Amino acid sequence: MTDVLRRVGDKWSVLIVVLLGQGTRRYNELHRSIEGISQRMLTRTLRNLERDGLVIRTVYPTVPATVEYALSPLGSSLLVPISTLAEWGVKHGQDIESARGEYDAQSTRQGWD
């Protein structure tokens, strides 16, 4: 269970799954679409998602080789819980911001920094 939560709780994995949920992408398309991810981290994350059976990597024999990434059926099934979590985040984002503001104000008054 811990391994599964680590994978789906990883921010890069979630972003990649969401992007691939919109359709097959090439490596550079993914890299341009994810702000702040390094090439090394993208490669590592894609390999881990492929290893976990969530992503399918297809190599086409062209020069240079063309590589595409798509969600596997297992990866597609992950879109439902991710979408539910995203909806929850949108619905309660302001509540969380308010709670943070209250906490920060209280911690400043009480010198918790």
Rank of each mutant, 00 (worst) to 15 (best):
V4S: 15
V8P: 06
G9N: 04
K11D: 10
S13F: 00
S13T: 10
V14F: 03
V17K: 09
G21Q: 03
T24A: 13
Y27L: 07
N28M: 09
N28G: 00
N28Y: 03
N28S: 05
L30F: 02
H31W: 01
H31A: 09
R32K: 11
S33K: 10
I34Q: 00
I37H: 00
I37R: 01
Q39N: 10
M41S: 15
M41Y: 08
R47W: 07
L49H: 08
E50N: 14
L54F: 12
V55I: 13
R57I: 02
R57N: 04
T58G: 08
Y60K: 14
Y60H: 13
P61I: 08
A65N: 10
T66V: 11
T66D: 11
T66I: 12
T66G: 01
E68A: 10
E68T: 13
A70W: 05
A70T: 11
L71W: 05
S72R: 02
P73L: 10
L74I: 07
G75V: 02
S76D: 01
S77W: 08
S77A: 14
L78I: 04
I82W: 06
T84M: 12
T84C: 01
W88M: 11
W88L: 13
V90R: 14
V90M: 11
V90E: 08
V90D: 10
K91Y: 00
H92T: 11
H92K: 11
G93N: 08
Q94H: 06
D95S: 14
I96G: 01
E97T: 05
A99S: 06
A99V: 05
A99K: 05
R100Q: 06
G101K: 00
G101N: 00
Y103L: 13
A105C: 02
Q106E: 11
T108E: 09
R109V: 02
W112E: 10
D113N: 07
D113G: 05
D113L: 00
